[in-house]
């Protein structure tokens, strides 16, 4: 039986200044999974996400979103970059940042109107940030900024969500709130790919996992492949993680 894949990566190689960062990656991500990408620093996790999004051009290989190149499918994909990738002193409000999520469906020149504003307000409500809508973004805490980024992705109403370390620098409450939203999205049939650092929480949060360290080590259901063997192969040291059933 042919399975339906949200993302297929074929023989992807990415190099910065001739140094390979990703080496011949093959990856088929089934639709409807909540997948963690784990690996040590410098393993190419963010690079993999950026290559899927076409932000970084690979030197070999290809990426397909539902069988087509990214350029034709960008409406299907929402991206949550690392929080540190933008200047939070930028003169704008929480609501305005969330509104930016609607720009993709508007295309060039057309301006956001009432419909877009309503969608943004709903997304803010979903992440529990409605009361902060008019706040200047530098006046938000790290956790709140991350929620704003999540709301901005929600408003895109995409089928695939790519998130680069959404739990970095957020408090425990926010982490729980975010993971609940992610699980809800999966229930609604969305595909979610999350660069993740905390190995302890992988079995609790995710149902699918990819081990990455320049090369792909393993990919599959958490219950099948999240084990000491793969962790050791990925991190290069003996790993013992207690997987709770």
């Amino acid at each position: 039986m042919e399975k339906k894949y949200a993302i297929t990566v074929d023989d992807l190689t990415v190099a910065y200044n001739y140094k390979p960062v990703l080496w011949d990656i093959d990856l088929a991500i089934p639709e409807g999974v909540l997948m963690a990408i784990v690996g040590p620093n410098g393993a190419g996790k963010s690079t993999l996400i950026k290559s899927i999004l076409g932000i970084i051009k690979p030197i070999a290989g290809s990426v397909k979103i539902f069988g087509k190149p990214y350029k034709k499918q960008h409406q299907e994909v929402a991206y949550v970059p690392q929080k540190g990738s933008v200047d939070w002193d930028f003169p704008t409000t929480a609501l305005d940042v969330v509104m930016m999520g609607t720009y993709g469906s508007l295309g060039w020149i057309k301006r956001p109107g009432q419909k877009e504003k309503k969608a943004a307000l709903e997304a803010l409500e979903k992440v529990g940030m409605l009361s902060f809508k008019s706040r200047q973004i530098s006046q938000l805490s790290g956790g709140q900024q991350q929620r704003i980024f999540l709301a901005r992705a929600l408003v895109q109403n995409a089928s695939i969500y790519l998130m680069d370390e959404p739990f970095q620098g957020v408090d425990a409450t926010t982490e729980k709130a975010i993971i609940n939203i992610l699980k809800e999205l999966r229930k609604a049939g969305k595909t979610l790919i999350v660069v993740h650092h905390d190995l302890q929480t992988v079995p609790e949060y995710f149902d699918w996992v990819t081990f990455l360290n320049v090369k792909k080590i393993a990919t599959g259901p958490v219950k099948d492949i999240f084990n000491d063997g793969n962790l050791t192969k990925t991190y290069g040291i003996n790993y013992k993680v207690s997987v709770q059933e």
Partner: peptide
């Protein structure tokens, strides 16, 4: 006036702008 939205998003978040097709 025509490209205010594009200017804003690509100034604030270049990567998002790229992924949204701007």
């Amino acid at each position: 006036i025509t490209f205010f939205k594009e200017l804003k998003i690509s100034t604030f978040d270049k990567q998002l702008a790229a992924t949204l097709g701007f």
